[in-house]
């Protein structure tokens, strides 16, 4: 249940930023969550509902961008979509891969008032 820690970190980042902007309310938050980022979305949603209570994010609309996994094969240098960490390169069948996208976990922007 590390999703609760992640939600609490998001709340911290968002509130600190909103306070810096002298805002009272966060109306919207945009978050990138890569599909390979080890966040289980059901656990994340559950943690979110509980954790945002009585914070500036309580009524915020949540926009989540899921970013698909993408890898580069260091054998044949092709880029390909990666669904699981153990997927093989579709060209050479090897597992000599480097992940280039899909591990993102970041707060992109807020709308505050």
């Amino acid at each position: 249940m590390h999703e609760l820690s992640i939600v609490l970190s998001i709340i911290d980042i968002a509130q600190q930023q909103a306070i810096k902007e002298d805002a009272a309310v966060i109306e919207e938050i945009e978050i990138d969550i890569g599909c390979l980022s080890t966040v289980e979305m059901n656990a994340f949603d559950f943690a979110w509902q509980q954790a945002v209570k009585e914070t500036m994010l309580e009524k915020a609309e949540r926009k989540i961008n899921r970013i698909n996994g993408k890898a580069r094969c260091s054998g044949c240098e092709v880029f390909f979509p990666l669904k699981n960490l153990y997927d093989a390169c579709p060209k050479c069948g090897e597992h000599l891969i480097d992940i280039v996208e899909g591990k993102e976990l970041r707060v992109r922007s807020l709308i505050v008032s």
Partner: peptide, 21 residues
């Protein structure tokens, strides 16, 4: 945290990793 309020709607770029801290 103490803060005063000023109610203008504003888009704020954050671009911060969640596990940044």
């Amino acid at each position: 945290h103490d803060h005063s309020h000023d109610h203008h709607r504003k888009v704020v770029d954050v671009e911060k990793d969640v596990l940044h801290q």
